[in-house]
Write a protein that binds this DNA or RNA. Structure first.
Length: 579
DNA sequence: GCCGTTTTCGGCCCGACTGTTTTCAGTCG
C-alpha cells in the first residue's frame, strides 16, 4: 500500500499563514539573511493576518498579489502551504538551526545576532540551556555581553511563564476609563498645557499593551513627578525629567512623555503610530526629499526643519489631510488622505438607537425598566429588548411583551421595541417558530453552540438563518472572543454575499471581548453593501456605555454614518428591513 | 522580497537606549 502524503483537508487560516511567515522571517534572521527580505515576510504576515478574506484561497486563485506587500514569491509560498501544509524553505532552515533558538531570540534584550552567537559559541539551543549558561556566568565570556546581560536574561526567564494564549495585551474596554482618568488628572494638575492619549489606545486598537500619554509643560520634571506620585501608582519603572513609566495597581503600564510645545504635533503623530503607518508615511516623504522624525519634518536639500505644534500641520506639510487615528494602520489611508477621499467616519453621537440588549427576563442583570431608563439617559431614542428565546417559552414572551407595552406608557420619549435573540441551531433552524418571530419588532439570530464544526456547516447555518424572512440581523457573526477563542471557521465571503442578497444586517457587537465583526470584516461588509448594526449586547446597565467601543471598531473599519443602520431613526431603519 | 512621480534595478524610516565599549552593535518602538 502506498502512503499518500497528508494533504490538509481545509485551507490554512490567515492567522496560521501569518504565523508560518513570521517563523520563516525569524529563522532567516537567525540565519543572517538580508534584513529587507525579512521585513518583506513580516510585512506580508501582518497583511495576511488582518485580511478579511481567506488569503489561502486568494493565492490559489492567483489573486493574492493584489494585497500590497505580497508578490509572486510569497503568493507561491502561500499556495505551497495550502497544498502541502509546509514550506521547503522552512524545512531547510529547521535542519540547519535548533528549534529552540527562535525562543532564545525572543527573550527581551536578546535578538537574532546575540542568539546566534550564544548557539555557536556556547551551544545554547533552548531557553533551558540559556538559563544554565546564564546561571554559570558563561555569557560574560562573549564579547559584547557582560554581567548585566546575564542578570537581565535570568530575570526575563524567571518572569511568570506566559501562556501562549496570553498575548500580554489588555482589552481596550478595560483600559479606556483609566486612560481618561489619567489624562484628566494631568490636566487638572495645573502643570500641563496640553495632554493627549497616544499609541494604540488613541488608535482604538481592540487590545493594547502600554498606555501612551503625551503632554507639554513649562516645568516637565514637575509633571513626571506628579504622575509618579499618583496614589494609584503601584510601581515607578522609570522616572526622568521628561519621561515617566509607571504601573498601576491594576497592572496597567502608563508611559508619559513631556515634550516642547513647538514639536507637540510631530511627537503626537509619532507616538500615535502605527508603526506601519509611520514607516509608509516616511518612505513616501523620502521620495519627496523630506525626512520625517518625531522632532519635525526635515527638508533634506535645504536642511530646514519644519516643526509642528499641531498634528494636522504635520500631515499638511507632507501633503495629506489629517487622518483619524483609527485609520492609521497603512491600510490605504495615506493614499486617501492625499487625494481627498478619506471617509467621514461614523461618530458615537450619530447613533440613535441600540438594537441588542438583555434584561433579567433572560440572562441580563438589569430589569426592563432599569435598562430602558439607562439607555434614555445615554441619549438613545430607541432600544430593542432582545432576550434569549430559550428563556421566553411557556407564555413568558407574551408576558414580557405586555411589560414592554406598560413601560412604553411610562417612558414616552423612548421607543422600546419588542425584540428577541434566537439561537441558530446546528441544522440552521431557529429556536423559535416563524409565526412568533413574525410578531416581533426586531429579530437577532446568533450562534451560541457548536462552534467547531466544519466551515461548510457553520457557513450554511448562518446563510439559512439569513434566508429566514423574519431575521433582521446576525449577532456577533464570527463568534470570536478576544484572547480566548478564535472565530468560527467561516466562508466569510459567502456570508457577506448572503447578507447582501437577503438584506440581513450584520452586527458589530460592542462587548469588549467580542468586537465582532472585527475591523477588516466590517470594512469588507460595508464595501459589499451589507448594512451594519452597532449594538452593545448589554447584560447590565453600565454595559450600555460599550457602544463607543463598537463605534471605534466601525471607525477602524472605515465605516461612514450611512453604512451604519442604527445611525438612523427607527422609522428609517424599518424601511431598510427586509420584512 | 517588494515596489515604482528615481518604474524592472536599486533602493527600502528614524531615533533612543543599553551595555558594552573607547566609537559602536544590537535591540526596541
Amino acid at each position: 500500500m502506498r502512503i499518500i502524503a497528508a494533504v490538509p483537508q481545509t485551507l490554512p487560516r490567515n492567522a496560521e499563514l501569518a504565523e508560518r511567515f513570521e517563523l520563516l522571517a525569524d529563522l532567516l534572521e537567525l540565519d543572517g539573511a538580508d534584513a529587507f527580505r525579512l521585513a518583506a515576510y513580516r510585512r506580508a504576515a501582518a497583511r495576511i493576518r488582518e485580511a478579511a478574506v481567506p488569503v489561502a484561497q486568494l493565492a490559489l486563485d492567483g489573486k493574492a498579489t493584489r494585497l500590497s506587500g505580497i508578490g509572486g514569491t510569497i503568493e507561491a509560498k502561500i499556495v505551497e502551504l495550502s497544498e502541502t501544509g509546509d514550506l521547503q524553505a522552512l524545512a531547510k532552515l529547521r535542519d540547519k538551526l535548533p528549534s529552540g533558538l527562535v525562543e532564545v531570540m525572543h527573550v527581551p534584550g536578546l535578538g537574532p545576532k546575540t542568539a546566534r552567537k550564544l548557539w555557536e559559541e556556547l551551544g545554547v539551543d533552548s531557553l533551558d540551556s540559556l538559563r544554565a549558561a546564564a546561571e554559570q556566568e558563561r555569557l560574560r565570556a562573549l564579547p559584547g555581553l557582560g554581567a548585566k546581560t546575564e542578570e537581565k536574561v535570568l530575570k526575563a526567564l524567571s518572569a511568570p511563564a506566559r501562556r501562549s494564549a496570553d498575548t500580554g495585551r489588555t482589552l481596550l474596554g478595560r483600559v479606556l476609563g483609566a486612560v481618561r482618568q489619567a489624562v484628566e488628572e494631568i490636566e487638572g494638575s495645573g502643570l500641563a498645557d496640553r495632554v493627549s492619549e497616544a499609541g494604540s489606545v488613541r488608535r482604538r486598537r481592540e487590545t493594547v499593551r502600554d498606555l501612551d500619554l503625551i503632554a507639554t509643560a513649562a516645568d516637565p520634571p514637575a509633571l513626571t513627578a506628579f504622575l509618579a506620585g499618583r496614589p494609584w501608582v503601584a510601581e515607578v519603572v522609570a522616572h526622568g525629567p521628561t519621561k515617566a513609566t509607571v504601573v498601576s495597581h491594576e497592572g496597567l503600564r502608563f508611559d508619559l512623555r513631556v515634550v516642547p510645545p513647538e514639536s507637540y504635533g510631530s511627537l503626537l503623530q509619532h507616538f500615535t503610530g502605527s508603526k506601519h503607518h509611520n514607516v509608509a508615511l516616511r518612505e513616501e516623504a523620502v521620495r519627496r526629499g523630506l525626512s520625517v522624525s518625531e522632532y519635525g519634518v526635515l527638508e533634506t536639500e535645504s536642511g530646514e526643519t519644519f516643526q509642528a505644534a499641531d498634528e494636522d500641520a504635520v500631515y499638511a506639510r507632507l501633503g495629506y489631510a489629517w487622518i483619524p487615528p483609527e485609520l492609521r494602520e497603512n491600510g490605504g489611508e495615506l493614499e486617501a488622505a492625499r487625494n481627498g477621499s478619506l471617509p467621514a467616519l461614523v461618530e458615537l453621537a450619530d447613533l440613535q438607537g441600540d438594537l441588542h440588549m438583555h434584561t433579567d427576563w433572560s440572562d441580563g442583570r438589569g430589569t426592563l425598566e432599569e435598562m430602558a431608563v439607562a439607555a434614555l439617559e445615554r441619549g438613545r431614542r430607541y432600544v430593542a429588548i432582545c432576550d434569549h428565546a430559550r428563556r421566553l417559552r411557556d407564555g413568558r414572551l407574551e408576558q414580557q411583551t405586555e411589560a414592554i407595552a406598560a413601560l412604553r406608557e411610562r417612558l414616552p420619549k423612548l421607543e422600546i421595541l419588542g425584540g428577541i435573540e434566537v439561537d441558530i441551531r446546528a441544522d440552521g433552524s431557529l429556536d423559535m417558530p416563524d409565526d412568533v418571530l413574525a410578531g416581533r419588532d426586531w429579530v437577532m439570530a446568533s450562534i451560541h453552540s457548536g462552534f467547531d464544526g466544519p466551515r461548510e456547516r457553520l457557513t450554511e447555518r448562518l446563510v439559512s438563518a439569513m434566508e429566514n424572512p423574519h431575521v433582521d440581523c446576525i449577532g456577533h457573526p464570527t463568534g470570536r472572543k478576544i484572547n480566548r477563542r478564535p472565530p468560527y471557521d467561516l466562508d466569510f465571503e459567502r456570508v457577506l454575499e448572503a447578507a447582501v442578497e437577503t438584506g440581513t444586517f450584520l452586527e458589530i457587537n460592542a462587548q469588549p471581548d467580542r468586537l465582532d465583526l472585527m475591523d477588516s470584516h466590517a470594512r469588507a461588509a460595508a464595501e459589499a453593501g451589507a448594512g451594519i448594526v452597532i449594538s452593545t449586547d448589554a447584560h447590565r446597565v453600565h454595559e450600555l456605555d460599550n457602544l463607543e467601543l463598537g463605534v471605534a471598531q466601525a471607525r477602524r473599519g472605515w465605516l461612514t454614518k450611512d453604512q451604519v443602520v442604527n445611525a438612523r431613526s427607527w422609522k428609517q431603519v424599518r424601511k431598510l428591513m427586509k420584512s
